[in-house]
């Protein structure tokens, strides 16, 4: 039997977030500063979720924000930073260093192979790399085996089956067909690995329109669809909007001031916000949307977006 065969999968952000349970293993889509499901993270914070075990590849704003919002219990990503822009992810650092968040750091290919095992319906995958790295010490669940064909020492990494996978995508229809623009990062793989799948979308399109553009993932792999314009903000969701450096700069300055100062960010953009429309107004409304869409206008306009303080 297929996984998700409901005819109409459209639900509210609140309802979708309420299906996530405290302690769940949650795979987060997108990566670094691109297409991360930030609106869903805000809703999980408003609902007071706790102790989520976050898994994914190389991430940035999302994981730092989730740590700052107090919903994370363990971090099984491969990298968390603001890259060459702002550098170290300070909420994430504080949470790891204080012991609030368990460090289950992993490596990209290792975790990809674990998602593959889950997606392929097999118990583990063998890998040849990661030998020599102490990242293996953070994973007592890994095993060694001498390959019966080559005699090489293999590391066996078990299937990683997230309780839920949450992705933000460009387009979806109510039946659950999904169109993602490249790069997919690990979204397609994690969706196939997870038990439950929530997709938030920038644009809700008709099923006829979806047939024309061709879905990236078929409807039977998607459980819930939520329509949230600007749902990845302040990370990018091209072609709609680029990364909001101005907003991330405001965010980062508060994380630098410390945990207390960061509460101001949470109050302003999370806890006091009643609707997605209100959030869009708070971040600058139509004018901000227009500016973040201006990357299309020219190389100069696009470059300008990376200069905002």
């Amino acid at each position: 039997m297929g996984k998700f065969l409901e005819r109409n999968k459209l639900i509210s952000l609140e309802k979708a977030a309420s299906t996530v349970k405290d302690g769940d293993m949650v795979a987060i889509g997108g990566g670094l500063c691109l297409r991360e499901p930030i609106a869903m993270l805000r809703e999980l914070m408003r609902q007071g979720k706790k102790n989520l075990h976050i898994v994914g590849t190389a991430h940035g704003f999302d994981m730092d924000f989730a740590c700052g919002g107090g919903i994370v219990g363990a971090a099984q990503d491969t990298h968390v930073s603001f890259e060459q822009d702002f550098g170290l992810a300070l909420n994430y650092r504080r949470a790891c260093e204080s012991g609030k968040v368990k460090i289950n750091e992993n490596c990209c290919n290792t975790i990809i192979q674990q998602f593959r095992a889950a997606a392929y319906g097999i118990p583990f995958m063998p890998i040849m790399s990661a030998k020599g790295s102490e990242e293996t010490l953070l994973h007592p669940e890994f095993r060694h085996m001498i390959c019966p064909f080559t005699g090489n020492d293999l590391i066996l990494v078990p299937a990683l089956i997230p309780d839920v996978c949450i992705c933000h995508v460009q387009k979806a229809d109510i039946h659950g067909n999904v169109k993602i623009e490249q790069p997919y990062v690990a979204d397609v793989l994690m969706t196939r690995a997870a038990k439950h799948v929530i997709v938030t979308c920038e644009e809700l399109v008709s099923e006829d329109e979806m047939k024309k553009i061709g879905p990236t993932m078929p409807y039977y792999e998607i459980e819930h669809v939520v329509h949230v314009p600007m749902g990845a903000h302040p990370t990018s969701c091209y072609p709609y909007y680029a990364y909001d450096r101005e907003h991330i700069s405001e965010y980062y300055k508060l994380t630098q001031e410390g945990e207390e100062a960061f509460k101001k960010y949470l109050e302003k953009y999370v806890f006091s916000v009643k609707s997605n429309d209100e959030y869009i107004e708070k971040i600058g409304g139509a004018e901000k949307k227009k500016r973040l869409a201006s990357w299309k206008d020219s190389k100069e306009a696009w470059m300008e977006l990376f200069k905002y303080e």
């Binding site: 990298h79 490596c107 290919n109 890998i127 790399s129 030998k131």
Partner: peptide
């Protein structure tokens, strides 16, 4: 060291695998 972390660095992303491969 694990259990006694002074500074959490960003993490190696794909480096642990690719430095081997």
């Amino acid at each position: 060291r694990p259990g006694k972390v002074k500074i959490k660095l960003p993490g190696g992303a794909g480096g642990c695998n690719l430095s081997g491969d």
